[in-house]
Amino acid sequence: MSGRDSALARKRAVLGGRHAMLVVLSLLMVFPLVLTVSTALKTDADVRSNPFGLFSSFSTENIVAAWTLGSFGEYVLNSFLLSVPSTLLVVVLSTMGGYAFARLPFLGRTVLFYLVLLGLLVPFFAYMIPLYFQLRSMGLLDSLLGANLVLASTGLSFGTFFMRAFFSDLPTEIEEAARIDGASEWQIFARVMLPLVTSGAGALAVFTFLQNWNNFLVPLLYLPGGEYRPLTTGLYLFLGGRSVDIGPLAAGTLITVLPVVVLFVAMQRQVTQGFLSGAVKG
């Protein structure tokens, strides 16, 4: 009896030790975010004397300064204008392509699928320089349209791969039953199969949105004029005077990461699913 009790007590102690370590480690991982919130919400005077002391004063003046003087209000809008259309484009085109590659036999299907998958192997890095001159000659440099098309194209290979997997998993019986009922191929796709992959499309949307929101190189290279500058390159520009304006810089950083943090916490499962299957393809 007492032997079992002590074994149980030991088990509990080990678990308690684990929890203690996990708490310390999670605090270390989250600390940089805490620091950002703390510095962003200080008074201007406090930032000057003690920029990184945690929560030593409270004021929204830095947020206001970043939003108006630092143009972060404008950057937020631009980030949405760059992330939302490109994400929609990825989800729609990948869903269409994924369905065709999974369930519709046509000549050259395998070759075309591998061509699309090539994008998973070749990093954006390899062709970013020629793409700059191509966009310039197409008149798409410094335009919302051009940046959205490029952002979308960087996500299409993964999106198609991801959606194809969902459509491949659906049983053929559903499709055949619909066909016997006289549904056209388009109706089978749009009315029968599409509703069955909405959770997959949702996960892809969240994942792609985060990628596009965080993207730095595409706006840095292809929106040099600054008219449609999003948060990432806006923050980078603001960094130029870092020693001078830590308060507004912290507020700008907070504005940049806040949507990401909220979206990630709220849709933690979808985001994780995206990254997990993103990894599985190798």
Partner: peptide, 23 residues
């Protein structure tokens, strides 16, 4: 714990660079 550990990976790298510059 899972959210805390995975969080840094989903943040934009520009923001990560700024914050660690302060540290």
């Amino acid at each position: 714990y899972r959210v805390a550990f995975f969080m840094p990976y989903v943040l934009p790298q520009v923001a990560i660079g700024v914050i660690w510059g302060w540290i």
